[in-house]
Design a protein around this nucleic acid. Sequence first.
DNA 1: TTGTAAGCGTTATCAT
DNA 2: ATGATAACGCTTACAA
Lengths: 328, 328
Amino acid sequence: MATMRDVAADAGVSPKTVSRVLNDDPHVSPATRERVERSMRALDYVPNAFATTFRSGRSPVVGVAVPDIVDPFFAAIVNAVEEAALADDLSTLVTSLGHDPARERPALESVVRRQLSGLVVAPTTNDHRYLAAWAARIPIAFVDRAPGGLVADAFLQDDRGGAREATAHLIGHGHTRIGFLGDALSAPTIAARLEGYRDALAEAGLPFDPALVALGAATRPGAADALAQLRAPELGVTAVFSSDARCTMAAVPAITAHPIALTAFGDFPLADSLTPSITVVAQDPAALGRLAAARLVERAAHPGRRLRRTTVLPVALVERDSCRIAPA
Amino acid sequence: MATMRDVAADAGVSPKTVSRVLNDDPHVSPATRERVERSMRALDYVPNAFATTFRSGRSPVVGVAVPDIVDPFFAAIVNAVEEAALADDLSTLVTSLGHDPARERPALESVVRRQLSGLVVAPTTNDHRYLAAWAARIPIAFVDRAPGGLVADAFLQDDRGGAREATAHLIGHGHTRIGFLGDALSAPTIAARLEGYRDALAEAGLPFDPALVALGAATRPGAADALAQLRAPELGVTAVFSSDARCTMAAVPAITAHPIALTAFGDFPLADSLTPSITVVAQDPAALGRLAAARLVERAAHPGRRLRRTTVLPVALVERDSCRIAPA
DNA sequence: TTGTAAGCGTTATCAT
DNA sequence: ATGATAACGCTTACAA
């Protein structure tokens, strides 16, 4: 592998001149430039990205960490980040955090150790103080969930408002006993959506009944159990608000087998083609990723600039059939 | 940011000793080790990954390039590669190639330039001679599709056999006029599946009718058009074999609206919950990714070793409802 | 067991 | 316009 020295020797110039040619420094005579370029071609010279990176102390790579890349919501975020990064000649280092909060810290620390140009993270924990030291050195943008104990850019969706709207929509269809389906309230997004659900009930003058909150629905068996629990006749539940696309997808077999009025937070592929098709509050994961990546680039370019740290994207109710199932 | 020198100074030893402690070199007295470790902690020392990487000339990163990370099939591959890489302390650099073959070469070259430890690629083109120079330096493993014009490890599925089986299954249900739904035959996987489809017809003594091959079905409108074309009464088509999960998903609205007997290559989320549920030939993308990543590691460890270059994984027919729709 | 010196390939600084 | 030199942080070879 030819190095800059080899090229310099071949062209009869100093390495620095080769470097200048490489970096389009105007202070090179056309003749010299020509000669150097010829040597580069002759020797099949490719600059060693490591050396450059090493010298500059930062690699042209943005990290993106999400709980689960197979989840279409997070895949869309990753995809958007990658596309945006590409436009700035940055590669994308992807890390799956898994759904176990304990894995987040080691995973992120090992990523951030690579001194990348920035990091987009959809976190699984609520405490990010351990990132403070890193956040001082590289831009970190949170998506989907806000950082905990750390001031950083965050791009979120209107969890509470969306949940309120989805729940109110069911109330508008005449339901008064509405179940809440979710995974775990430890996730701030889910907690916020529970608040929105309660908001809608309160606005309609309906009582909040903790017995109607069914959790652990992130897997098919879990969702089936949770739904079965909500269907207990003595609860009188006639409709369900699913707080999370992962839970909704897990609940699909149970829903299609025994339909019940449903609205759900988060759209997902084929939600419109199920029987019944699922009414959802649609988020925009691509926008989340795009904005976060753009912010990293902006922070890198203008370190001092003051920018609104938190951006909340609106969500949109997409009305399909599942909300129209009449109270039994 | 503290460097090795700082730690050395603080501990009153030479940088080399710090290096030894870091690398678990046994030739360090416990007392010295102890002192160095204390200094490392005190100074919050984190080794500079660049310097290490630079010195060793290879970064602990595997690249993985797929057409589209939002496609659950490729997401599963990426996920499997990442998991396998993690086990070997490797990070994962993800690149989406897009479905435009022209983008493959520049995208892969820019990835491979980063001198990573290996590359897993699900290619979009059929000619990979441009990778020959790189393949000589780092292990490259192809998944889903074989390399063209290049000898490299490949992990594939039984496209032809799977398509044969899916088509034969429809024939077994009494269909004799079976449409072939696909995107483009330029993809070797799809071409192989067309062969399998023809194999099944031939085995059953049925003629192959090119009019029953409907392409361009990778998008919803495209799939709807292709299906409409196949439904033309004069063709007498009573069943369809969809050659690709992306096309099948795109065709879902048209299928659920007007059911027709169907088997499809490639499982996808919720295929079992649609009405009708879709009978598929299931691939194992996670196995593809896992095997490919393992192969990279193995190649790195044993450069000379002779290994079977091509591995073809079996596929499995998952019988659901869509194949049972009777000929009209 | 520990240290010294040199160098990985590039670029910044300061000369010329 | 071009070059000499040093430096980035670490590791390898060789000493001590």
